[in-house]
Design a protein around this nucleic acid. Sequence first.
DNA 1: CTGAAAGCGCTTACAG
DNA 2: CTGAAAGCGCTTACAG
Lengths: 357, 357
Amino acid sequence: MKKGKKKITENHGVKEIARRANVSIATVDRVLHNRVGVSETTKQKINEIIKELNYQPNILARRLASRVTFTFAVLIPKVSDETDFWAAPLYGVKKAERAIKEYGVKIDVYFFDINDRKSFEERSKFILKKKPDGILLAPSFINEAIQFTSICDKRNIPYVLIDSNIPNQEGLCYIGPHLFRSGYLSAQLVNFTLAKESEILIVNIAKEVDDHNYLQQIEDGFRAYFKYYNLYHDILKLEIVSTDYSSVEKELAGFMKKHPQVRAIFVPNSRVSMVAQYLETSTKGHVFLIGYDFLEKNIEYLKRGLIDILICHKPSEQGYEGIMKLYQHFILGKTLKKIYFMPIDIITKENYEFYEN
Amino acid sequence: MKKGKKKITENHGVKEIARRANVSIATVDRVLHNRVGVSETTKQKINEIIKELNYQPNILARRLASRVTFTFAVLIPKVSDETDFWAAPLYGVKKAERAIKEYGVKIDVYFFDINDRKSFEERSKFILKKKPDGILLAPSFINEAIQFTSICDKRNIPYVLIDSNIPNQEGLCYIGPHLFRSGYLSAQLVNFTLAKESEILIVNIAKEVDDHNYLQQIEDGFRAYFKYYNLYHDILKLEIVSTDYSSVEKELAGFMKKHPQVRAIFVPNSRVSMVAQYLETSTKGHVFLIGYDFLEKNIEYLKRGLIDILICHKPSEQGYEGIMKLYQHFILGKTLKKIYFMPIDIITKENYEFYEN
DNA sequence: CTGAAAGCGCTTACAG
DNA sequence: CTGAAAGCGCTTACAG
């Protein structure tokens, strides 16, 4: 910290308002916060002066004086061996926590198992018992999430959704990708590299418990692009429900043997590294491979040229912004939009180093 | 703003330190800020307790009590008819100003004319007279900028550079793109679409007064990619120094007539829309066009399919982060890195709507 | 319905 | 070299 000059004293604070209105600052405070117990006349007079002075409360002083604390609960999948995707949103949440903890915000993070919908139910019930002021939520299990959020609606607990949305949700807002458009973009990128009509393969690697709705939206977008532009590529699809590598390899090998003309593969989730691993061992020429998420394994194959493109939706920013939206709602009293779409970022071997995941 | 619970009273503040050290809080404050006039013994005792308690100062209280104000000067090009590129950094600066003005920061923005190096000199002298605490600077005229910053170095005025860097600069930090790598990425993207060896054209549209160094770094990166991967495309180059459209059109038409085989055009600055405009009128098949910056004109051609890709370095974030770095340095006393590279973003027709410029 | 006073965790003259 | 006191712009019991 260095020099700097002296501040000019404010004279547009509550004190000045009180002086002009001929009341005490306590009464001004009551009006400022819409508290009961102020006569209509006084209220109006004070409100006029507030407007006249274009009064902006000093947030610092407000926070310092206020003894109110808000508790936000966060419910996201725990990081597993299978994927460290959820490390990024968690990182964002922690970053937000650091940024606003001085402002009277407490954050409790709860994890569920992405392979166990019961764990989601159990954790969400636990959170309700804790009576948080607000909730940040990844609705990975759509039905369970709907049940959870409808209780929140009833109890008037605001919640923010990240990663994917719930149809007609009544919460505070959604922060995440436009999945359909994300698939649409992927199709454009695939099309960039295909000189003529070719075979394109969509590979879904997902257990049944996974959220197929998520994958479906991306796939719909992907297909829609080719349809819209009258591009007659041959779009094949392979569903793999066993997510261990040896099963994936077997299925892929079998499929590729039957379809040696596949020129591009699209994997609508983060398991694209498995396909890359397979392609590395196969002796064919280069197959254009595009998939999702800035994970260590994926970046490894990106560097080695086996994955050409990764699509990314700024997962840590989702966590960060999710908390900040709750903060803006509760502490700053800001009005929020219903949906904040994340950018759909294109990551290649040549720009991944600069990417802010 | 909603309910919330009562805060638990802190008991790790200066008061507690003072109590344990058997001194007054004024003395604690002196130690905290490395002020003179504290005996070595007391100082050590207090420092020990600070460590023991892992004392974190309450920034809110500090700001509220402190009457110190910092003034930052910003020197960037003014938005011209030719390009509204600089609207974005300015937007970022304004956003940062809003975010931190309560923390005793005042920001004065000064503009120079990107076509007039004298205006840069004049403004920079004016800024020095104003004796700001810190400076945010776009060093568009490299020699003039070096002169300016060397005076800042002498006078111990910290400065942050954005958009492009100065070799061996002694300032606080640089926030902007890695230009060489940006060109490198562009080459990769061009190569995605070229099935076989093709003619690629680099078009430089820039007046002599413009910063050729900037363009050169990008071009170097662009060429380096093909060299590194042993790709034998034929790379042509066209320099256009008259930046009005009719001149550009004439030059382009003449060149393309001689080189009808050009399959891709790379424009290393924001004037890519001029090339798009030309291509729209030409009757040839699609030429893959890639250029720079999220400008209205460019987006228009992106939408219409004449520009395929725009590369972008988050200009508004550069402005925002630039101010925030000064803030972190002066108010938070944080140690900064020398260089913060911006992401190199890839914008297409299908994701521009979600881009945070 | 309203006000006087204490306090949030710091910084800042001022006095010694 | 050190401390007592006032103050930053608010909020919060408490009393009336």
